[in-house]
Design a protein around this nucleic acid. Structure first.
Lengths: 217, 217
DNA sequence: AATTAAATACCGACTGGTTGGTATTTATGT
DNA sequence: ACATAAATACCAACCAGTCGGTATTTAATT
């Protein structure tokens, strides 16, 4: 009878891949890099994954699972109002921009950029991760549109994906400038956009006296 | 007297680098790839550039120059009103999303993502390209804020950079999904945001009957 | 309970091909 | 003749992936 798979080994490899790929990108990451980061051997790597490509696909899936769990248990679901939940989601995304760049940037966004033209399997896994995450926002957006009687020429899905576009673009600004604050500022604009879309007060002008940051960082 | 350098050679290498890096990314691009695409030899390559890294920096600079010239001569400058010019810029960015992905995506955004942690020289050149381009929008944004008496808790620079974030993020969506339309939809949201910020009518609801596309594609 | 067989987990040296870069040579314009 | 541009040949380091082997676990058999 078989020796049972040590679930830690595979996970260690996947999470080592998260760290290395998020800081160097997919192409520049070597299998040895990942093994070193995981404290495992090449033998272990190729026992669990047939190729570097297969690891990348598995990593994208594991990314969907771990981030899915993170967002499910995140505090932004508490408001009763769907629009407030949506805004709380954006505020949450803003709040978790902390520490070093590889700690808060997106694995699948990074990989997609590198492999879209050369590796359909990885591309597909990345898109499913991004799209799947965006889909979790759609019910709240639809409810908010209904609640506020919005007759829009945009769809809930397109707004959900737009939030992801802003996040991905914000990460690029942060990486290029080396300043995470650039990402935060862009997410602030996204927050303001959603407020405006749904007619939350104070979009165009604001009362005298600086409005304080809504997250109170 | 020395044999004069053929000015086409260096440019051919740089533009070959544009094409290859935009479709495969920086790390996956080999020097031989670029030489093949340029129809030149490795000898020519290393005669003009000391290293692959130096080529990347030169490519980022050349990118700033060529895109700078493209945008300077683009038609979005014609409106007299600064806000209209800004909106025309966004509409122009939307219009030029055509053809294959490597034909309209951003070289320096792609590179920045891969090298930000490992190659400061390239990262710097990428940031200067993105930031420099964003800066060209700042005077119009400032003028539009003045014209409309906007007392904002955001700066002109942050809005200019936000437009770039949305564009970069839109490219990632397009690459991940394989559907350029996803990028267009995100840019539509950006357009709507700027309209809303400056109090252009019709943000929250719209008159009965579908509003037609503003660019009339 | 002890032994053995079978299956898997993991190791690390090795390989064939690729990579960035160098050394040498040839072509070309002055 | 001379200096530079560009081509070719070449190299050492590196890479993904392979392979023979060892360690560990479980189940069947005694």
């Amino acid at each position: 009878m078989p020796r049972p798979a040590n679930p830690l080994t595979r996970t260690k490899l996947l999470e080592a891949a998260f760290a290395v790929i998020r800081s160097k990108g997919y192409s520049a990451t070597t299998v040895d890099d990942i093994c070193r980061a995981a404290g495992l051997s090449k033998g272990a790597f190729f026992h669990h994954f047939a190729s570097k490509e297969e690891l990348a696909v598995a990593a994208a899936l594991h990314w969907s699972e771990t981030t899915g769990a993170l967002f499910e248990s995140a505090p932004y679901h508490t408001p009763a109002d769907p629009l407030e939940r949506l805004l709380a989601y954006v505020a949450f995304r803003r709040e978790i921009i902390q520490g070093d760049l590889p700690d808060f940037t997106c694995l699948v966004g990074t990989m997609a950029q590198e492999v879209y033209g050369t590796n359909p399997a990885i591309q597909k896994a990345c898109w499913e991760s991004i799209h799947g995450h965006a889909e979790t926002l759609v019910p709240d957006i639809e409810a908010a549109m209904r609640d506020r009687g919005i007759d829009a020429d945009w769809t809930a899905e397109s707004l959900a994906l737009h939030t992801q576009a802003v996040l991905q673009g914000a990460f690029i600004l942060a990486k290029a400038s080396g300043e995470p604050r650039r990402a935060v500022e862009s997410i602030d604009h996204l927050y303001r956009y959603i407020e405006g879309l749904f007619g939350v007060a104070g979009l165009r002008t604001r009362p005298a006296g600086r409005r304080t940051s809504r997250t109170g960082e």
